[in-house]
Design a protein around this nucleic acid. Structure first.
Lengths: 181, 181
DNA sequence: TGAATACTATATCGATTCGATATAAATGTA
DNA sequence: TACATTTATATCGAATCGATATAGTATTCA
């Protein structure tokens, strides 16, 4: 999963470890630690997917190799993960531009099916729980989960529509900038 | 994190491993694997926080010890995790009924501050990215993240209001049951 | 009845990831 | 100059994941 993120970032040009961490944060993957990032870099270097460039000072920059680029494509295409982790899908999406356009809609639709499944089972859980057995906090949690999944599916529908018809997404942005306070 | 979940579930009565997994799924923590659950049980048993009960057959049920109950309270109270993981907060919330009522609002408000922080930094990322440097998928991802955090904060506000005023939450449930299709 | 299939249940293994900590150079700033 | 912050890499033990093994029990149905 980190491999995917690292290869994806290096696809745009050479970067060193600390720099990668910064860009991952910008992308929203804030909790990825150096304790996984640096080992991942050595791992990828050993596999020949990235190549260390000597730079001045303590920095060790890496660039993507041919094999690395191929591996990135493979990971982006990869359909062997049924019901993949949210984080993993998000990382894939962040590098969607490197996925063959023809495969993008398919990938989004697969994600949609996963979420529909999840919605169903979460709703069933909720319905069982609504029988009065469950305390209000758990119930609140379950309800919020349903709403979140529904919102994710609607968002995905917009992405799919945009992908199909080249529709403009999110015409209005002002609400995104209001501070909830 | 798993410790918290296991202790929380056992608080309501003895259960065996497979059973715990099932209940975790019901609660929405679907991706917790046996590869972490069983080691966690042995870990907790070794620390004397849970006690194995002999049952018929292959089952090994566990019950919470006095120390386990104390540890659960401690973990629920725990404020040493600034900006805790979403998953961890959700697990704490699922067992909120075991947290002293006076501490509940505080805990929710701390979570709210964390989310406000996250909202701010995510919005700043988005604003930087909107300068035209970033592709549409990454942009879509960042925008969706902002919206999700805003929704989480609003949900939290309802929880806080309910906690303070004993207000009924979610009067209307019908929309939660519609299948998005 | 008996064979095939699914479900329940525990366990283990290597690899990955986390979270905390150490170290030190460069840079800012009082 | 002295001190704090930021940049940067590294390491360590522990937690978690994901896949796989094993085997008893229940269900199905030919």
């Amino acid at each position: 999963m980190l491999d995917l993120a690292v290869l994806g970032l290096l696809r745009a040009g050479p970067r060193h470890g600390y720099d990668l961490k910064g860009h991952l944060s910008e992308l929203g993957f804030r909790r990825i630690s150096f304790g996984s990032l640096y080992p991942a870099l050595r791992r990828l270097e050993k596999r020949g997917l990235i190549i260390a460039l000597r730079t001045n000072g303590r920095r060790k920059a890496y660039r993507l190799s041919e094999e690395g680029s191929a591996e990135l494509s493979r990971l982006l295409r990869d359909e062997s993960h049924p019901n993949e982790e949210d984080r993993r899908f998000n990382i894939r999406l962040a590098f969607f531009r490197y996925l063959e356009p023809a495969l993008r809609v398919r990938s989004l639709e697969r994600r949609r099916r996963d979420l529909i499944d999840r919605l169903g089972s979460t709703q069933r859980s909720l319905q069982r729980a609504s029988g009065g057995t469950v305390d209000r906090y758990t119930l609140a949690l379950m309800r919020h989960r349903v709403i979140s999944i529904q919102a994710d599916i609607e968002w995905l529908d917009e992405l799919i529509a945009a992908e199909r018809g080249n529709v403009q997404i999110y015409a209005n942005t002002s609400s995104l900038m209001r501070g909830t306070e």
